[in-house]
């Protein structure tokens, strides 16, 4: 499989805080790769660096054959990258449909209707609520909106930052079902999770991040059965 994303030796700082310490990994086309780790391990920082909101002091980030390490965040959508940020970050005062339209901001206006149609098909719940103000949606619906919004641009790589956060178990199942459907439909996915059990069960490959460093990597299966992972992330 062709390599879609290559992160090579990145170091990211918040002022004096060294949050990411020489992280390298890659995502191939068609894979689901997950990045697991505890609170503060640096998962969100890694995603923000890929999407250009933060900068690495060293190394390189290659996406679809292009070096994107210095590309401004708002230009990356056009390259085929989309991120569903932690905490959803939908536009609470805008309607569901307006949120989705923002996801298609870089697309020609003529394509918006078709993209809306496609996303509404994936998330029928959103269609029922297209005129509703996003801030009044339930947590699960907000997560669907955040995912739908990211899918509006038909990304080659979808990066999800803790999509299961704060959701009831039944909704977590639902969100993971959707992730697997998206994957089957051909979307490459980089999934950040604290819910290691769920993440590893859907992932082709996985990396474990600990205080800014990758300490383990392997297939989803390997890691789910590894002693270290069981102890640290799967409750024994």
């Amino acid at each position: 499989m062709a390599e879609l994303l290559n992160v090579n030796d990145i170091n990211v700082y918040y002022g004096a805080i060294h949050a990411i310490k020489g992280v390298s990994f890659h995502v191939d086309e068609g894979e689901i790769v997950t990045l697991i780790g505890a609170n503060g391990a640096g998962k969100s920082t890694t995603l923000h660096t890929i999407s250009g909101l933060l900068r690495s002091k060293t190394g390189s980030i290659t996406f679809d054959g292009k070096n994107i390490g210095n590309v401004q965040a708002h230009k990356l959508v056009e390259h085929g990258l989309a991120q569903v940020p932690e905490g959803r970050r939908i536009f609470l005062q805008m309607t569901v449909e307006e949120n989705l339209e923002m996801g298609a901001y870089t697309q020609p206006n003529a394509n918006t209707a078709a993209s809306l149609e496609r996303v509404y098909e994936q998330f029928p719940r959103l269609k029922e609520r297209q005129r509703q103000i996003a801030g009044t949606l339930s947590g699960g619906e907000q997560q669907m909106l955040a995912m739908g919004r990211a899918l509006m641009s038909k990304p080659k790589l979808l990066m999800l930052d803790e999509p299961s956060m704060g959701l009831a178990p039944i909704l977590v199942e639902q969100i993971f079902d959707i992730i697997q459907k998206l994957h089957k439909a051909g979307t490459t996915i980089l999934l950040v999770e604290q819910n290691a059990q769920m993440a590893l069960s859907v992932a082709d490959r996985a990396y474990v991040l600990e205080t800014g460093k990758i300490t383990l990597s392997g297939t989803g299966d390997e890691l789910i059965h590894s002693d270290e992972v069981r102890k640290a992330y799967l409750g024994g």
């Binding site: 965040a73 708002h74 056009e78």
Partner: peptide
Amino acid sequence: EDKDAARLMGIS
């Protein structure tokens, strides 16, 4: 509402 989220949408 949210500048970083807007950036992630491709808005300058």
